[in-house]
């Protein structure tokens, strides 16, 4: 608890002490919930898109309370660029891989031709891989949308 208090008081920038403290308390739980939604997306409400938006909104909350510069310490612009591109690559690459091994685009059952696993299992894990890709892409796009809108394109200072 003391370490937490020192961390909150020592970070410069941002606005009010109450806002900074509550944001620091809320962000890890929002991120955990986002990961839960992505991982359980294929058999319960939620999925890659909603989980990605939750993960992105945690970073938006951090940028809102501490400024854009501070949130870049946790995810730099290059990391954001990599996240978005790897997410899109996982989605499209897995779809095209399914088409290459003898099915249609995003036809996960066709992967059973090359890697021996039962057909229902492939359908189950294929959706999971695609949801992870969608989540990464959506998270990065949401964060960069907020960075660009809040700093009028310069990405230097926040609201």
């Amino acid at each position: 608890m003391r370490r937490f208090r020192e961390q909150v008081q020592n970070t410069e920038g941002g606005t009010d002490l109450i806002i900074r403290t509550s944001v620091r308390l809320m962000v890890p739980f929002i991120q955990l919930f986002g990961l839960y939604v992505i991982v359980h997306g294929h058999y319960s409400p939620g999925g890659g898109f909603q989980g990605g938006v939750l993960l992105g909104s945690a970073f938006i909350l951090l940028a809102l309370a501490y400024g854009v510069e501070y949130s870049k310490k946790y995810m730099s612009e290059f990391a954001n660029f990599l996240t978005v591109n790897i997410g899109v690559f996982i989605f499209v690459g897995f779809g095209i891989l399914c088409a290459l091994v003898g099915g249609f685009f995003l036809d996960y059952g066709a992967m059973a031709n090359v890697f021996p696993m039962p057909l229902p299992e492939w359908r189950y894990w294929g959706v999971f891989v695609v949801e992870v890709g969608v989540g990464m892409g959506v998270m990065g796009i949401m964060v960069s949308l907020y960075w660009d809108l809040a700093s009028a394109g310069s990405r230097k200072e926040g609201l």
Partner: peptide
Amino acid sequence: VDVAFTEATVGAGVSTILFIAAIFR
């Protein structure tokens, strides 16, 4: 429930923040 979840995260959460950021600018 799935549509409601999307509306709660995107409609009520992120898009409101983006609107407010645009209004501040």
